[in-house]
């Protein structure tokens, strides 16, 4: 369709704006990759930091983030998937369900620093877990719970109703039906959604600032009651608190790249899993 000159102008403007956003994303990624890549080597990812992180590696920060992700998943996944199963398979439209849905929406909107305050008040101080992997994981789990619930519920609802009916009509109980004919087909969707949620947790700084992250702790944790370093916090410290910020710039870029790769890698992995299973179960 060839419109008038002004139509074409507006069309071009809209397109330019959209591509400006794409270019910006591209530029951010490009800048971090190009300047981070020279630092990235085996020593950097497997070594311990020296001189407050001005040299050496970032292994404790990688390990810390890894433990936090693991802890977050193991708390948030069962709770999130359980909630989703309840909401999609059991819940009737009623007050209780409305309250749960309101709560989930509220949780999704709470700022990450408020989660940090909450984790400090409840886990660190009230439960006396101290600043530890446990407190940090629990705080992050609360934060990603709504993402996991929403994604899992969507995956469950995508399973055709006919499977449930057919299974019930054969005399299966409700739970048998869910276990054998709903969960297997929605698993990939639930995992995808959860990984995307957890990817977000891996990159968050504000909630762990007050609940777990150590400024400089060049060793690996022994238990869930230990403090750890974490990649996002390490980057923050290197970029803003280091006395010689300009000089450690390569280390900052290296850390940023590792964090970016980790978070985007998780997302890409999730998308890959989704594509793989979409082929397996087609309806």
């Amino acid at each position: 369709m060839s419109g008038s000159f002004s139509e074409n102008l507006i069309y071009g403007l809209l397109r330019a704006i959209t591509y400006a956003i794409v270019l910006l994303v591209g530029y951010i990624l490009f800048d971090i990759v190009i300047k981070g890549l020279p630092v990235l080597n085996w020593e950097f990812v497997s070594g311990y930091p020296h001189q407050s992180g001005a040299s050496g590696g970032i292994l404790p920060a990688i390990a810390g983030t890894f433990y936090l992700v693991l802890g977050t998943i193991s708390v948030a996944l069962p709770l999130g998937v359980g909630s989703a199963i309840y909401l999609s398979e059991y819940a009737f439209q009623g007050k209780f369900t409305t309250i749960i849905r309101m709560a989930i929406i509220t949780l999704a909107g709470v700022p990450s620093i408020v989660y940090g305050l909450f984790g400090l008040g409840l886990f660190v101080l009230f439960f006396r877990f101290g600043a530890s992997i446990l407190s940090g994981s629990l705080t992050l789990a609360c934060m990603v719970l709504p993402t996991i619930i929403v994604a899992s519920e969507e995956a469950l609802r995508a399973v055709p109703k006919g499977y449930r009916e057919a299974s019930l009509a054969l005399g299966a109980t409700k739970w048998e039906t869910i276990r054998t004919n709903v969960l297997p087909y929605s698993l990939s969707g639930m995992i995808t959604g959860s990984i995307l949620g957890v990817g977000r947790a891996a990159g968050e700084t504000a909630p762990i600032l007050l609940t777990v992250a150590a400024f400089f702790l060049p060793k690996l944790p022994n238990s869930i009651f230990d403090q750890v370093m974490a990649l996002p916090y390490h980057l923050y410290i290197l970029a803003t608190q280091h006395p010689d910020a300009e000089k450690v710039r390569p280390m900052q870029y290296g850390t940023a790249l590792v964090l970016l790769l980790l978070v985007l890698g998780l997302s890409l992995g999730a998308i890959f899993i989704r594509a793989h299973y979409r082929k397996k179960y087609k309806w």
Partner: peptide, 29 residues
């Protein structure tokens, strides 16, 4: 039958945690 009940109770418990967390956030802040 008891198994179905148990599962349902567990799931309601899981679903309630969201409400619990919201309440705790307001409470502890």
């Amino acid at each position: 039958m008891w198994k179905n009940r148990a599962v349902q109770t567990l799931l309601i418990g899981a679903a309630s945690t969201s409400v619990l967390i919201v309440v705790l956030i307001f409470l502890f802040l």
